[in-house]
Lab assay of single mutants.
Amino acid sequence: NLRWTSEAKTKLKNIPFFARSQAKARIEQLARQAEQDIVTPELVEQARLEFG
């Protein structure tokens, strides 16, 4: 299971509600691909840039 830093959680809250669950799934996918067990603000930002 993935842990989220408080900064990453804050960044996730800045994503519009309607896109948040999809973004969260993508962020967690990116973390797993990078073999990380902690979601960082950088991963959230990477996903945000993908979504535009």
Rank of each mutant, 00 (worst) to 15 (best):
N1I: 11
N1P: 14
N1L: 10
N1A: 12
L2H: 02
L2C: 03
L2F: 05
L2T: 03
L2K: 02
L2S: 02
R3S: 08
R3H: 12
R3Y: 13
R3D: 06
W4M: 01
T5F: 02
T5V: 03
S6Q: 14
E7R: 07
E7F: 02
E7N: 05
A8F: 00
A8M: 01
A8P: 00
K11S: 11
K11E: 08
L12C: 04
L12H: 01
K13W: 09
K13N: 14
N14I: 07
N14S: 11
N14H: 10
I15P: 06
I15D: 03
I15F: 15
I15W: 14
I15V: 05
P16M: 02
P16W: 05
P16T: 02
P16D: 06
F17P: 15
F17K: 15
F18D: 04
F18Q: 07
F18G: 07
A19D: 14
A19H: 13
A19E: 14
A19L: 14
R20Q: 09
R20N: 03
R20I: 04
S21A: 15
S21E: 15
S21L: 13
S21M: 12
S21Q: 11
S21T: 11
S21G: 12
Q22N: 09
Q22L: 13
A23Q: 04
A23P: 01
K24P: 01
K24C: 05
K24M: 11
K24Q: 07
K24T: 06
K24V: 13
A25Y: 07
A25H: 09
A25K: 13
A25R: 12
R26W: 12
I27C: 12
I27K: 00
I27Q: 00
I27Y: 01
E28N: 03
E28C: 03
Q29I: 08
Q29A: 11
Q29K: 08
Q29E: 12
Q29L: 09
Q29N: 07
L30Y: 07
A31V: 04
A31N: 00
A31E: 01
R32E: 05
R32K: 08
R32N: 05
R32A: 06
R32Y: 07
R32Q: 08
Q33H: 09
Q33S: 08
Q33E: 13
Q33W: 10
Q33L: 12
A34Y: 13
A34W: 12
A34H: 11
A34E: 06
A34N: 14
A34S: 12
E35N: 15
E35L: 13
E35D: 12
E35A: 13
E35F: 14
E35W: 08
Q36S: 12
Q36M: 14
Q36R: 11
Q36W: 07
Q36G: 04
Q36H: 08
D37P: 09
D37C: 09
I38W: 12
I38T: 10
I38P: 08
V39D: 00
V39G: 00
V39F: 00
V39R: 00
T40H: 03
P41M: 08
P41I: 12
P41R: 06
P41Y: 05
P41G: 12
E42T: 04
E42C: 04
E42K: 06
E42V: 05
L43T: 03
V44W: 03
V44K: 00
V44M: 05
E45M: 10
E45D: 13
Q46S: 07
Q46K: 11
A47M: 07
A47T: 05
A47Q: 03
R48S: 10
R48F: 14
R48N: 07
R48D: 04
L49P: 04
L49D: 06
L49Q: 11
E50F: 07
F51G: 06
F51P: 04
G52D: 12
G52S: 14
G52R: 13
